[in-house]
C-alpha cells in the first residue's frame, strides 16, 4: 500500500485546509485523514471536529458508521473476500476456509501482517469467487491465486 504519513496534528490541519469547499464535510474530512495517515487516529477526531466546528461525538458517529474508515493502522496485506450470493454460488465459502488456513488468520481478524475480511459484492460476480487484495480486484480466485496476488 502507498506510504502514509505518521500522525501529526500539524499535517492533519494542513491537509484539511487544502480541501475544496465541497469536501469540508465530516465524511470527506475523515476520508482525507485516512488517505493521509492510512487510518483515522483517535487524535484526528478532535482536529476534524475543530476544523468543521462540530462536536467530537458527531464525528465519532460518522467514523463508526462507515466500514471503510479504519481506527487502527492498516495491515501490510489486506485480503477482502467476497461472500455475497453470486460468489457463494461459485465456491466462496470454501475459498474463505482455505485462505484462513493458509494464513492462520480467521475472517475478521488481523495478525501483525495480514487481515482477512469479508465484503459483500465487488461487481465481479460473473467471475467469482472475487477478492480485493491490497486494493486490486481479483477474479476466479483459488487459494493459490490469492497467495500469488499477495506477493505480486
Amino acid at each position: 500500500m502507498a506510504g502514509h504519513a505518521p500522525w501529526s496534528a500539524t499535517v492533519a490541519r494542513e491537509v484539511l485546509e487544502a480541501l475544496p469547499s465541497y469536501e469540508r464535510l465530516m465524511l470527506p474530512a475523515l476520508q482525507c485523514m485516512q488517505r493521509t495517515f492510512g487510518y483515522v487516529p483517535d487524535e484526528a477526531l478532535d482536529v476534524v471536529a475543530d476544523f468543521l466546528n462540530v462536536s467530537r461525538a458527531e464525528v465519532y458517529g460518522v467514523l463508526t458508521f462507515y466500514h471503510d474508515l479504519r481506527r487502527a493502522a492498516p495491515p501490510r496485506t489486506d485480503i477482502k473476500l467476497c461472500v455475497a450470493e453470486a460468489c457463494q454460488a461459485q465456491g466462496s465459502r470454501e475459498l474463505v476456509a482455505a485462505v484462513e488456513e493458509a494464513y492462520g488468520v480467521r475472517l475478521g481478524e488481523v495478525n501483525s501482517d495480514v487481515e482477512i475480511s469479508e465484503v459483500f459484492c465487488l461487481g465481479d460476480c460473473a467471475l467469482g469467487p472475487a477478492a480485493m487484495i491490497n486494493g486490486r480486484l481479483r477474479g476466479r480466485c483459488t487459494v493459490d491465486s490469492v497467495r500469488a496476488a499477495v506477493t505480486a
Binding site: L25, L27, F65, Y66, L69
Partner: peptide
C-alpha cells in the same frame, strides 16, 4: 459534475441515505 466516493455502507443505496452520506453524515 463531480464524483463522490462512498465509504463502505450497505444502506447508502437507498436514495435518502445516499443524500445524507453526500452531506458527509451517517447514511
Amino acid at each position: 459534475i463531480r464524483v463522490v466516493e462512498g465509504a463502505g455502507s450497505y444502506v447508502c443505496g437507498e436514495e435518502t441515505a445516499m443524500l445524507e452520506s453526500l452531506e458527509g453524515k451517517r447514511g
